[in-house]
Amino acid sequence: MDINQKFTPQTWPKHPEQATLEGKNKLVGLWIFLASDTVLFASVFATYIALKDSGPAGMEFAARDLYELPLAFIMTMLLLTSSLTSVYAMYHMKNYNYSGVRTWMGITVLLGLGFLCLEIYEFYHYVHIGFGYTQSAFSSAFFTLVGMHGLHVVIGLVWITGLIIRNSSRGLNLYNAPKFFAASLYWHFIDVVWVFIFTVVYLMGVLG
């Protein structure tokens, strides 16, 4: 594969992300990794569900009074929208429009950053009112589960930012197309996990 091969929209393959064997490997590998990550999240999720009502005798904070739905709703909207913007980026990649890819991926990063800031604010707020990591089994489980998702967001942000910086001046080719596609798949996966977090942690937490 010649990395410097220049394309026109007409010679650009219909599936640029899987035009090379490396690209195919990368995508299958990422999917397989996501399957594995699903199980990792499932085990922490299951632990959270088992521990969500338990703490030491006289525990102050119960899920019911703790969570604030408006904040969770805004975070959900930010992440869902960022999922759509990364779909737009992939749409432009198929059309060999690099500036489109860069713009939409950039917007994805901004939305992700917004999500992350809100999450940090939320954690800060909880710690501030006395709901710390070591407070109870429930608090440990909550911070571990949501924090693990937050860590995935950070990794996704670093990954996408890195891709944008690395490829800012060289445009699309068959070497970096699978990389962009893989990063966008990973970003969607973060959204998939969040769907369960807002349902199981926040909504079911408020229901009690």
């Binding site: 899987q18 195919k24 996501l34 399957a35 199980v39 499932a42 632990t47 088992a50």
Partner: peptide, 26 residues
Amino acid sequence: THMVGVIEFFIWSAAFIAFTFFVAFT
């Protein structure tokens, strides 16, 4: 998509295993 059937198999296996965790832990 390359090997999409195999990918689906793995993803749904993961989902099924995740489901058993939920059932067991609840």
